[in-house]
Computed example of a mutant assay.
Amino acid sequence: MAGLCLKTVTLVFFLSAGSLAAVDQNTLAVDQNTLAANQDTLAGLILAVKDRYLIKGMFSLALSIQSKNQNLEQIFKDNPVNKVTDQLSKGLVYRGKRLAVAKVKKPEHAELRLLTNLSLVSKKGDLLVIYSYASSCSTSCTVINGPYNIIKKINNVIDKGNWSKYAFVFEKVFSPKNKTHIEKCFLRKALKDLGTSRITLANIFRCYVPNKANSSFQCTSCSSDGGVTEACIDYEQECLKECCRIES
């Protein structure tokens, strides 16, 4: 990813009082002077955080954004890169007040490690963003009664907080180490099952670079016509330069 000059990044999202409606990726506005116009959405937020911490491999993070003019640069200041990377290099989960980050530590996936005992500062009107490098797997992450299920973990986190909106974001379509692809029916089921959490399918997004000429990093809703959006389960949608086999 190309570096972004982040002197001051201000994020604003608009929420009517008491509303738990789906997150609108186009109302997560960012300062036009610090990010390109085509990144002034949820994509801009994810790209800014990724560019700041430059974490390699499989990882997951949670971000608690205030509802009124939250300055992302303040979150970066409160969670310095060296502190985040130091904790991760020791195999630990980094936990700040409004940011938490985890990497894979077998047999646990990054999402599970992140969500276990996750507690972020939140107030009414705030937005919770959970980012995962890859989409949820159908063999463990979303198995309802499985030991590595993240659905209950997500619900526990939301129940303990005061967020008014939530978003789950992933970039790559999950592919285990011993396989190139997983059949779409399993990928679709995993997203549908994840959508049974308090997040709901309407608030699950794939943020990535599509396999189209001159495409930029962008977000696509994984909910369409009551089902799962094809782009969220299609390996061929990814820009070939961005593709890599995901280690599980």
Rank of each mutant, 00 (worst) to 15 (best):
T116G: 05
T116L: 05
N117W: 05
N117D: 14
L118T: 00
L118M: 01
S119I: 07
S119E: 12
L120M: 03
S122E: 07
K123R: 13
K123W: 09
K124T: 13
K124E: 15
K124F: 13
K124D: 14
K124Q: 14
G125D: 00
G125S: 08
G125T: 01
G125L: 06
G125I: 02
G125V: 07
D126R: 04
D126V: 08
L127W: 06
L127Q: 01
L127M: 00
L128R: 05
V129A: 03
V129S: 01
I130S: 03
I130H: 05
I130R: 04
Y131L: 06
S132P: 06
Y133A: 13
Y133W: 13
A134Q: 10
S135A: 09
S135D: 02
S136Q: 10
S136T: 13
C137K: 12
T139S: 15
S140L: 11
C141A: 08
T142F: 04
T142Y: 02
T142D: 03
V143E: 10
V143A: 09
I144A: 15
I144V: 14
I144W: 12
N145C: 10
N145T: 12
G146M: 02
P147H: 02
P147I: 03
Y148I: 02
Y148Q: 15
N149G: 08
N149V: 10
I150L: 06
I150Q: 01
I151G: 08
I151F: 04
I154D: 00
N155Y: 00
N156I: 07
N156S: 15
V157Y: 02
V157D: 02
I158Q: 07
I158N: 02
I158T: 09
I158V: 10
D159N: 13
K160G: 09
K160T: 11
G161F: 07
G161P: 07
N162A: 14
W163I: 01
W163S: 00
S164M: 07
S164I: 06
K165A: 15
K165S: 13
Y166F: 14
A167H: 09
A167I: 04
F168R: 08
F168S: 09
F168T: 09
V169C: 07
F170N: 02
F170K: 04
E171H: 13
E171K: 12
K172F: 15
V173E: 09
V173D: 09
V173S: 04
F174Q: 10
F174C: 11
F174R: 14
F174H: 14
S175N: 12
P176C: 08
P176D: 03
K177E: 11
N178I: 06
K179S: 13
T180L: 14
H181G: 00
H181K: 14
